[in-house]
Simulated scan of single mutants.
Amino acid sequence: MYLLYTIIASLVSFFILKCMKKRRYCTDLKRLDGKTVLITGGNSGVGKEAAVALAMRGARVIIACRDPDRAEKAVREIKSRSHSLNVLHMELDLANLRSVREFCKSFLQREKRLDVLVNNAAMPSVLDWTDDGFSMCFGVNHLGHFLLTNLLLSRLKECAPSRVLTLTCSTYKYQKLDFQDLNYNLLPFFTYCRSKLANIYFSQELARFAEGKDVTTYAVHPGFVQSDWTCHYSFLFRMLTQVIMWMFFVPCEVGAQTVVYCAVSDEAAKHSGGYFVDCRPSTLRPFARDAGVAKKLWEASERLVKLV
């Protein structure tokens, strides 16, 4: 009985601390009229909330996702909540590099502007493989966005000043990259951590690659949010995780604040390649700031997606 009371008291304490913790909100009121924003995975979670917020600021918002039905439903919701009709969707499957190439070809033909690219879509810790034979986390979370960004970089440069936001996670700190096995797919959580570390290196190297082109980049950790990533798991796991998320995680609307901040803030533009948490720059672990590793990952990624 004592153990039960201890557990209950601990949970209550954690809940109170969570409620007391204040999260920063984006207070920059800059509008994005005439600008085009592309958000991968913008049909749910943080991506959808960011789409609503940026559409409210006047941006033309395009959400890219693989399920047309879910995308259409999300577009209707985003239009309703943002009171903007300038929202649409395009089909994109980041687990298929051919789909990424076809998407970029279509986008460049249809859209004359790209001012903000938000690499938001991500796969959770699942043991699965992409159509091209990469582990799902590494293939979708890193390689898919790597190819997407590179193929759209010319349009970003034409529309400069422009921005690239890549969502990552603080779990990056639990793993390092192994260049002998970048396609690691053994322990799901560690696979996810490596993909999120790759996102950080990618953002840093992209900042160096685009230096002088007025294209700034940001690695964004939205916090631990109450998203629907558990849909890939069993019913029991989903139920347990939903309880934990309700107690300790923040709503997706709050998580999207740092995305919005990095999309509009002049202050953020001074920290290209930086890692942002809670609407401000944050310090990375030393190993995650290794420019040599970032460059090596970029070159390896070019080969893997056949850009060279």
Rank of each mutant, 00 (worst) to 15 (best):
residue 1 M to A: 08
residue 1 M to C: 07
residue 2 Y to M: 10
residue 4 L to N: 15
residue 7 I to P: 08
residue 8 I to V: 15
residue 8 I to P: 09
residue 8 I to T: 10
residue 9 A to P: 06
residue 11 L to K: 12
residue 15 F to C: 13
residue 23 R to M: 01
residue 33 D to F: 11
residue 36 T to N: 11
residue 37 V to M: 13
residue 38 L to W: 03
residue 39 I to W: 04
residue 39 I to S: 07
residue 39 I to L: 02
residue 40 T to P: 00
residue 41 G to S: 08
residue 46 V to Q: 06
residue 46 V to M: 09
residue 47 G to Q: 03
residue 50 A to K: 06
residue 59 A to I: 02
residue 60 R to Q: 13
residue 62 I to Y: 05
residue 62 I to D: 02
residue 63 I to D: 06
residue 63 I to A: 04
residue 64 A to R: 00
residue 65 C to A: 10
residue 66 R to P: 05
residue 71 A to I: 05
residue 72 E to F: 03
residue 72 E to K: 14
residue 78 I to E: 09
residue 88 L to A: 09
residue 92 L to M: 00
residue 92 L to N: 00
residue 98 R to N: 14
residue 100 V to W: 13
residue 102 E to D: 13
residue 107 F to T: 03
residue 110 R to K: 13
residue 113 R to T: 15
residue 115 D to W: 11
residue 118 V to G: 02
residue 120 N to C: 07
residue 122 A to N: 09
residue 122 A to T: 08
residue 125 S to L: 07
residue 125 S to R: 12
residue 130 T to Q: 11
residue 132 D to Y: 03
residue 132 D to H: 05
residue 134 F to V: 01
residue 134 F to M: 04
residue 135 S to L: 09
residue 136 M to F: 13
residue 137 C to I: 00
residue 137 C to Y: 03
residue 146 F to C: 10
residue 146 F to D: 00
residue 148 L to C: 01
residue 150 N to M: 10
residue 151 L to C: 05
residue 153 L to A: 12
residue 154 S to G: 09
residue 155 R to F: 09
residue 156 L to M: 03
residue 160 A to W: 00
residue 170 S to Y: 05
residue 171 T to A: 02
residue 178 D to N: 03
residue 179 F to I: 06
residue 181 D to Y: 10
residue 183 N to S: 03
residue 188 P to V: 10
residue 189 F to P: 06
residue 190 F to I: 12
residue 191 T to Y: 12
residue 192 Y to I: 10
residue 194 R to H: 11
residue 196 K to D: 14
residue 198 A to E: 09
residue 201 Y to N: 10
residue 201 Y to C: 04
residue 206 L to G: 01
residue 206 L to F: 07
residue 208 R to L: 14
residue 212 G to Q: 14
residue 212 G to W: 13
residue 213 K to N: 12
residue 213 K to G: 04
residue 217 T to G: 01
residue 218 Y to E: 08
residue 222 P to R: 02
residue 224 F to Y: 02
residue 224 F to N: 08
residue 224 F to W: 14
residue 226 Q to H: 03
residue 230 T to V: 07
residue 234 S to R: 04
residue 240 L to A: 15
residue 241 T to M: 11
residue 242 Q to G: 11
residue 243 V to G: 04
residue 244 I to C: 02
residue 248 F to E: 14
residue 249 F to N: 06
residue 250 V to S: 05
residue 250 V to A: 05
residue 251 P to T: 04
residue 254 V to W: 13
residue 257 Q to T: 07
residue 258 T to V: 06
residue 261 Y to P: 07
residue 263 A to V: 09
residue 265 S to Y: 08
residue 267 E to V: 14
residue 280 R to V: 14
residue 287 F to S: 09
residue 287 F to K: 08
residue 288 A to T: 04
residue 288 A to N: 02
residue 290 D to W: 07
residue 290 D to R: 01
residue 290 D to F: 02
residue 291 A to S: 12
residue 293 V to I: 13
residue 295 K to Q: 07
residue 298 W to G: 02
residue 300 A to K: 14
residue 302 E to W: 06
residue 304 L to W: 00
